[in-house]
Amino acid sequence: MNPAEATTPARASKGTIRVVQLYPRDMNIYGDWGNALVLQRRIAWHGYTPELLEYNVGDDWPEDADILVGGGGQDSGQLIIQDDLQTRAPLLKALAEEGMPMLVICGLYQLFGRFFKTHTGTEIPGIGILDVETRGTDERLIGNVKVATPEFGEVLGYENHSGQTTLGPGVRPLGTVAKGTGNNSSDGHEGARYRNVVASYLHGSLLPKNPAIADFLIRTAAERKFGTFAPGEPDDHFAELARQHAARRPR
């Protein structure tokens, strides 16, 4: 240990922020677990104590959750979780209405909507937090994406989905696609926003290249829990390098 480090007192934590991963056992493809890891690291950089928890089918719901993150999955994964998700729907709706910050990607984006109808005609009911509908098609939307957003600047990621999602009047898009496809092959929008819920098709994972979204989730959680947010000094060097590299990639 450096002698200077030994004599430097540890900074007191500003408080604990609890991040709950929703169904990581069945809904965690294309690196979506990385979103939770980024939140864990950035919470610490901001001077708070991160606590990373999981909720899978049949688990007891974690108490005092502050941020909810959920990833994508195959149709089979959505079928596995659908009954349990429906039992948690009233709780999740209440938390969304109360303003809990949430990030849902791809498959859970779809199931936070009204329904997902697979390309074979099977309809998986959603929980209706988001005013969106998704229908599976034979067209695969795949490749690198750039999205212009009013809240987070340019958002970068990678899409890989055959479900085409349309937004209703109860939500607004996350942003407008500058490269790639987004929610569907017709309207030029990507993702959805409702209260403090951020929904997106972008994998890669999303947050390592888009720290502005991560900090929005953390700031919102801190303000709800502690009444204020005292930012730290995150190290964005590698995030910026990743953004530069991703922006240069072809579709």
Rank of each mutant, 00 (worst) to 15 (best):
D66E: 03
V69A: 11
P90R: 07
A65N: 06
R25T: 04
G175R: 09
L103G: 01
P9G: 04
Y201D: 01
V155D: 09
A4F: 13
A242D: 06
A214H: 05
I29R: 09
V147D: 03
P101M: 10
G188T: 06
H46L: 08
W45M: 11
T7H: 13
V38K: 13
T8V: 10
M102S: 08
R88G: 03
K93H: 06
N183Q: 08
K179Q: 15
T122Q: 14
F229E: 14
G170H: 02
A44S: 11
V197K: 09
G227C: 08
A246L: 11
A96M: 14
Y194D: 14
I218H: 02
L174V: 13
D235Q: 10
F216T: 01
L207R: 14
V177G: 08
P50C: 11
H119G: 01
Y194G: 09
C106E: 02
I127C: 09
N56Q: 11
I29Q: 13
F229R: 13
T134E: 07
A247E: 11
P50Y: 00
R25W: 01
T220I: 01
V19S: 13
L85S: 10
V147W: 05
G71F: 04
L95M: 15
Y158H: 13
G170N: 03
T49L: 10
A89Y: 03
T176D: 07
A222C: 15
K14E: 03
E154V: 09
L79P: 00
G126S: 05
E223G: 07
K225Q: 09
F229P: 01
S186V: 15
L68K: 03
A247R: 15
F116T: 03
